[in-house]
């Protein structure tokens, strides 16, 4: 009985987690520019990885492995935003963005004001 419940829960976690990876791939393909693609590339993994690691924890069913799984998730949480920020920042600075997809850009004025001062 418990075995079945555990297996079903594991299956749900695995499928849902993989769906998050699918969402990431879909977003990479369909979103219009670098900055919106960054959302798809980095984010669904926060939830996706959590679901996949939960599936691993359910199947191994030993408390010993839980801490290392938690650390795997936490380290992902600590590092993913840094790379997302660095790529977005570099992309913005090198003008790899489509202005027409932006509803507004409050950073533009700040950057222009600053570069005027430098000149």
């Amino acid at each position: 009985m418990w075995e079945t419940i555990r297996d079903v829960a594991t299956a749900i976690c695995l499928v849902a987690g993989s769906l998050m990876s699918f969402a990431a791939a879909l977003g990479m393909l369909r979103f219009p520019d670098l900055l919106s693609r960054m959302h798809a590339a980095t984010k669904p993994q926060v939830l996706g990885l959590l679901l996949l690691l939960t599936a691993v924890a359910l199947q191994t069913a030993s408390w010993g492995t839980v801490p290392i799984l938690v650390f795997a998730w936490l380290l992902q949480l600590v590092t993913a935003p840094v790379s997302a920020h660095m790529v977005s920042r570099a992309g913005y600075r090198t003008r790899h963005l489509k202005r027409e997809t932006l509803e507004r850009d409050e950073l533009d004025a700040v950057v222009t004001a600053h570069s005027d001062r430098v000149d």
Binding site: L26, G27, F31, L35, T101, L102, R104
Partner: peptide
């Protein structure tokens, strides 16, 4: 975000 990727795709509007 999943829903946006599915249905809105290239027409998504964003802002800074």
């Amino acid at each position: 975000v999943f829903r946006l990727a599915l249905f809105r795709g290239p027409r998504v509007r964003s802002a800074i």
